[in-house]
């Protein structure tokens, strides 16, 4: 099975990707992560439910990252029906501590549970902004299981961003 990751850094060396167990690590310059829909292939990261809902109908949108606390089931159902990825960045929990950590874990677990129920395709990424946030595929697999996935689902989540 081939695993992929997406980081917030502008450039990443893919010999490091092979060492960490990935086929490829996508950098921010490979796939644009934007707050508003654009004309090229992108991943939307937004807290506004309306913007997300609209982007899910856009052919250029590859997936969405939910930034806010509001999670609307209709949005996830639309993601499922349109074949868009629901992307979960683990930097929200690996770089957090205390109450923020618990809140973000609850949020990501809810996103996972609702996405699974809706039938949406999911992906897990590190979204590391530096060296200290980079994780190996082994760690990402355990993090996917920590969020509620079984082994098969965890492997699928690690591979889906590369499709």
């Amino acid at each position: 099975m081939k695993y992929y990751d997406l980081v917030a850094m502008q450039h990443i060396d893919n010999t490091l990707a092979a060492k960490l167990g990935y086929k490829k690590i996508f950098a921010a310059c490979d796939i644009g992560i934007v707050e508003r829909p654009v004309d090229r292939s992108y991943i939307l990261r937004s807290a506004e439910p309306g913007t997300i809902f609209k982007a899910l109908g856009d052919i250029n949108c590859r997936g969405v990252i939910f930034k806010g606390n509001e999670l609307i089931k209709k949005t996830l159902e639309k993601a499922a029906s349109n074949g868009k990825l629901v992307i979960m960045p683990v930097s929200e929990i690996t770089q957090a501590s205390g109450p923020t950590f618990m809140r973000n874990v609850y949020r990501l677990r809810s996103i996972f549970a609702y996405s699974k129920k809706s039938g949406a395709e999911m992906a897990i990424i590190s979204l590391a902004d530096g060296d200290n946030g980079l994780l190996s595929s082994m760690q990402m697999f355990e993090l996917a299981r920590f969020l509620g996935a079984n082994e098969t689902e965890a492997k699928a989540m690690l591979g889906s961003i590369g499709d």
């Binding site: 060492k19 960490l20 683990v90 929990i93 690996t94 770089q95 060296d131 200290n132 946030g133 980079l134 994780l135 190996s136 082994m138 760690q139 355990e142 993090l143 299981r145 920590f146």
Partner: peptide
């Protein structure tokens, strides 16, 4: 070992992160 791998994902010492390579 899986608990340890997960814990290493969250561990940060003086701003340093840890990556597991092999078990």
């Amino acid at each position: 070992e899986k608990n340890a791998v997960l814990a290493l994902s969250f561990a940060h010492v003086q701003g340093i992160g840890f990556r597991t390579i092999k078990i």
